[in-house]
Design a protein around this nucleic acid. Structure first.
Lengths: 156, 156
DNA sequence: ACCTCTGAGTTTGGATTGCAGACCCAGATG
DNA sequence: CATCTGGGTCTGCAATCCAAACTCAGAGGT
């Protein structure tokens, strides 16, 4: 039983990619994290086609990453906002990991464009790999992949 | 100057998504991590169309995430393998973050399908957010985003 | 010399998806 | 009653995806 004997699509990475495996989905989630919540604001900032944005938002809502909430300001007509659910907010680790990689490997002349920091202490935040014994996992550290009960073999 | 005043595409997440923001690119990288390195093996395991695989591999090579290496087994004709470069291997944090999310939010009846662990100590590995002062960043911890010299304002 | 097999793609034609821009609808506002 | 605006839908065309067929070169068999 080697890795390739297991079903590619029942892997957790594949399942997450099912939701997030699209340029726009990633960027929409990023903007939701950063407080861009209204349809037109997303359309404007991302430069995404309106119908595609509609579909991506529907996907995120359907997958439980975001919710469409009516926002009632008195004296104004009801607006709508898309807000991340707890499941959506759990993607922060992914976002920071993507950002770290871009900072290291795709920064321009002037270095990285943004810094995310811990509000309480001001220190920059990064994504790390750590094992449950507390050892830091470096890029060269050897790891092992083992199947669990949830694993599925490929059919035929 | 708020987030939406900055150019969406010059963000590090956008730049990483430029490379990895496609379902197949993510899965190809995942399989390269797991030792699936030959064209036909990738085609077979992923179920990806052959021409799309050709394009994705060309993308990964062009972006410096992978290299196409001839593998000469004596007495056999030369084969080729795609191998992750150091830049490609740096995506491990992203992969584990994606896997963690899938494990938590998309596991089936029987729980997660795979476990990645530290070979030296056997303990499972997870992606964490940590600030440079060493504080663990929980999903609810407040963070702050600040522009750096590399930031670009939107043109018009 | 000829045939076959295999790895690694390339080509082809039809089905999807993406895009920009035009259009639509309902609730304020003048 | 006409207009404006948020939040979409519709349309026509371009790019991408897909499965399956085709290509090509090097090894082996006969």
């Amino acid at each position: 039983m080697t890795w390739s004997d297991y079903d590619s699509t029942s892997c957790s990475i594949a399942r997450t990619a099912q939701v997030l495996g699209d340029r726009w989905a990633v960027l929409v989630v990023r903007d939701l994290f950063n407080g861009v919540r209204r349809f037109d604001a997303l359309h404007d900032h991302l430069g995404i086609a309106r119908d595609v944005l509609t579909k991506r938002l529907a996907l995120l809502v359907g997958e439980g990453l975001a919710e469409r909430q009516p926002v009632a300001v008195p004296g104004e007509r009801t607006r709508h906002e898309y807000v991340l659910t707890p499941a959506g907010r759990d993607l922060r680790v992914v976002m920071v990991a993507l950002m770290d990689w871009g900072d290291h490997h795709r920064a321009g002349q002037d270095g990285p464009p943004m810094r995310i920091s811990h509000r309480d202490c001001g220190a920059p935040i990064h994504a790390h790999l750590v094992c449950d014994e507390g050892h830091e996992i470096e890029p060269t550290t050897r790891t092992e992949l083992a199947p669990l009960p949830g694993a599925r073999l490929r059919s035929a």
